[in-house]
């Protein structure tokens, strides 16, 4: 069979279109989990946090986070009387092994657990030049580590300092809100390990989630609201000195 030049020119684009559709394949489906049915967030109840560091250790164990790097960490604030603008903040090894004993004095102390705020308008996903980080349809900000170049633009863009470049993989890494757990109906490792219930995973799309009643009756704040990141980690009783 011979193909004329004219036939070839007609056939090639048709073949390219067909090949495209073959490559696209069928979308992968996860059993019993529909992404669009969820909109994940977390509630942090500051008065309940005792600074034990369980969440930090649990996160490192669950997600193989290298030493010295943190997907979640705990900060201890000490605000001396009225000096809200100059809090003393410590976080020894991310609070992994707890905190040194504090002596009673004029000031006040409190713990602030931090993690990725799972922003709905996240600066980190906006700056990624290759589409390696993204907001999944269920509201979780994830990193495609096979696609990431390790340029670290996102590390600089995150106003909360929640990202780092993995020292071995050389790609961006961050809290996935234990995506491998929440899609299986489990809670996050940090919430599972928190002894006081200071951290609660919440699904804003689930009308029966206790977060709705909580938000109705408590003064709740997100970190750096002026940055309009659409942060979805809600802090109860957050002090004005927290950055």
């Amino acid at each position: 069979m011979t193909i004329t030049r004219r036939q070839l020119l007609i056939l090639l684009p048709a073949a390219a279109v067909a090949w495209e559709s073959v490559l696209a394949g069928t979308p992968e489906t996860s059993p019993n989990y529909t992404m669009t049915d969820h909109w994940w967030s977390m509630l942090i109840d500051i008065p309940k946090c005792i600074g034990c560091g369980n969440c930090v250790r649990a996160c490192q164990a669950e997600n193989d986070v290298p030493d010295g790097f943190f997907r979640t960490w705990v900060e201890r604030y000490h605000v001396d009387d009225w000096h809200l603008a100059n809090p003393q903040v410590i976080s020894p090894d991310g609070g992994k092994e707890g905190f040194p004993v504090a002596k009673e004095d004029e000031g006040k102390y409190f713990f602030v657990p931090k993690l990725c705020n799972q922003c709905a308008d996240s600066p980190c996903t906006q700056v990624c030049p290759v589409g390696a980080t993204f907001i999944a349809p269920d509201g979780v900000v994830l990193v495609d580590q096979k696609y990431c170049l390790g340029c670290a633009y996102c590390v600089q863009a995150c106003p909360y300092g929640c990202r780092y470049v993995h020292p071995q993989k050389k790609v961006a890494d961050k809290c996935t809100l234990c995506y491998h757990r929440i899609t299986k109906g489990l809670t996050t490792a940090c919430c599972e390990a928190c002894p006081t219930g200071a951290r609660q995973l919440a699904d804003l799309k689930n009308p029966n989630d206790p977060i709705h009643a909580f938000l109705k009756t408590h003064s709740v704040q997100v970190l750096k609201p002026q940055m309009a990141t659409g942060a979805k980690v809600f802090y109860n009783a957050l002090d004005g000195s927290v950055r």
Partner: peptide
């Protein structure tokens, strides 16, 4: 969206420890 859709399933497939 502007990302690899299969990455979601890959991340969801990580093993659990707790």
């Amino acid at each position: 969206g502007h990302y690899r859709g299969a990455a979601i399933a890959e991340i969801a497939a990580h093993p659990i420890h707790f």
